[in-house]
Design a binder for these strands. Sequence first.
DNA 1: CACGTTAGTGTTAGCGGTAAAGGGGACGCT
DNA 2: AGCGTCCCCTTTACCGCTAACACTAACGTG
Lengths: 343, 343
Amino acid sequence: MSKNATANVNRPLTLRDVSEASGVSEMTVSRVLRNRGDVSEATRTRVLNAAKTLGYVPNKIAGALASSRVNLVAVIVPSLSNLVFPDVLTGISEVLEDTELQPVFGVTNYKPEREEQVLYEMLSWRPSGVIIAGLEHSDAARNMLKAAGIPIVEIMDTDGEPIDANVGISHRRAGREMAKAIVQAGYRKIGFLGTKMPLDHRARKRFEGFTEALAKEGLEVADQEFYEGGSALLKGREMTESILKRSPDLDFLYYSNDMIGAGGLLYCLGNGIDVPGKVGLAGFNGVELLDGLPRQLATMDACRSEIGREAAKIIVEHAGSDNGGAKKIVLTPKLQLGDTLKR
Amino acid sequence: MSKNATANVNRPLTLRDVSEASGVSEMTVSRVLRNRGDVSEATRTRVLNAAKTLGYVPNKIAGALASSRVNLVAVIVPSLSNLVFPDVLTGISEVLEDTELQPVFGVTNYKPEREEQVLYEMLSWRPSGVIIAGLEHSDAARNMLKAAGIPIVEIMDTDGEPIDANVGISHRRAGREMAKAIVQAGYRKIGFLGTKMPLDHRARKRFEGFTEALAKEGLEVADQEFYEGGSALLKGREMTESILKRSPDLDFLYYSNDMIGAGGLLYCLGNGIDVPGKVGLAGFNGVELLDGLPRQLATMDACRSEIGREAAKIIVEHAGSDNGGAKKIVLTPKLQLGDTLKR
DNA sequence: CACGTTAGTGTTAGCGGTAAAGGGGACGCT
DNA sequence: AGCGTCCCCTTTACCGCTAACACTAACGTG
């Protein structure tokens, strides 16, 4: 077994190896690699060359332990298949890309116990901040977040008491506004189609806001239909068919997301149902996908990437501090009437 | 300022705090929290109680440094908006959920230099394994991966030389098979619609396989159209319109992904074009979304979640080892003729 | 010329855990 | 009694890096 510096493949490289290869102390190598403190140009290039030829990759674990600085931001969302969250994550990445912070994503599948677990796991890496979807968390999760001593930003939803900072929209209000627009357009027999998931608090709040605003007009939801799992587009079709068969006198269908709304739209168009004359339709989210449909579905933009960007900005501003300054940013979703709501 | 154990909010908790609170050594606390070694039931509960009341969260940074064991798996994909990757990530999560390993996701936006950067960042946390999309990487990236001394699984694509393990499908073959099916169905004037992105190597390989198989039949692609950015569904519509206006004699359109294919399908149906009689259509990926369309688009399943699952399994099997055993798993995409390809 | 000052580098002492080895008491066996 | 064996627990020595300080040479300054 040769003792040649490059030959010993098994032992991972450390600062010491670079230090020996370049003839300076480990400390100097550390300084060069972090661009911190004064190092002469000559030493700097020598060290960098040595590091490069050896293929040295710094060990952030040791670095983080020594400096108690971790450049990670924990980002916790319920799902990736929802179309909504990838946009949020993209917004976050965009902002963090220009900083030394790095997002780390975790997925909870809408399960509180899974959220707790993922959160625990992430906090045990002592990140510089947490961005987490929703305001509803288990007691244990809330306590962990409070005790973490880092900026916490709860996103998506602003209807509730945040732990620290908060960026999102009011889903109650979104539901109310959609209801108002629908009633104002003259629709009266209104059906609701949504997800069965009792843990999707935002969908629930939209529904609550929706029924509340209808109630003010002396109306109530005439029929409803829920689904779970599977292709949302297909479910949208199926639910639309079954609700219209059951309640043929409905004149409006409000979908809890654009995907099932799109399915409903395709169903109606395919079956010669006059939209928005006989039946009006609306969804929620403003997903890009809708642009390609034969007719533009009425919807409400959920400000997804803006939420991501604003949340990330808060983390960046407060990194190193023990909280996010309790900043609250309430964005206003824009109603897009599209072609499926009479004007 | 009280010296009360729970009062000092600022100093983060350590094993020492738990040890003092429960009257045993730090080592014993560590053993209890990791479920390792013999600890009496009495001590165990005492320690767990202390930890719980204090709200202690272990510091994995210190733990990882001391044990040189890190339960993270780096997962690097080009994009999250592609619909394909969330499925892969879900497959990975599914398998890792039952283990002590934890996935960490990174996104490269199809940029090699970004990939290099993300990889460097991730490797500096000394993960137990890497799952990375594609076989094409910069030299620096390849070297880092080779030198990392951990299992590496390159996923999605099997047309090339993997660094270590490899799970995916042959996109060349997928392209060829689709071409054969199209020609066999009697189509002769074939158009191709795809992404402009020169760095999407898998789309490129499908195209190459496709033209190659056509060539064997004495055919070539009669016209083509490329896009970039924006809503894929809408782009599919637009491209379809423009290619059919330019080359009205085309009798088949092959789309490089289902989303633009779906746009094309909607365009044809909306404009009374007989599908698959006058024009046949096919996409690629087998996305769930297609189930809800008025007609089932011909496509080829890319085995997305299975790829994720198999890759994760390899990591699990080889965690702790210095490589992934160079295992190669080539999955076979299933052709689904749907309703848009004559039989 | 003695004394700052500064730039560049080295030394020391941890960061918060864990591996490995080291007790010590209770128990059983001869 | 003397001894080995468990079982439980503690002690010690790091893991690879960085903060903080110490040092040195070279230079300016009054």
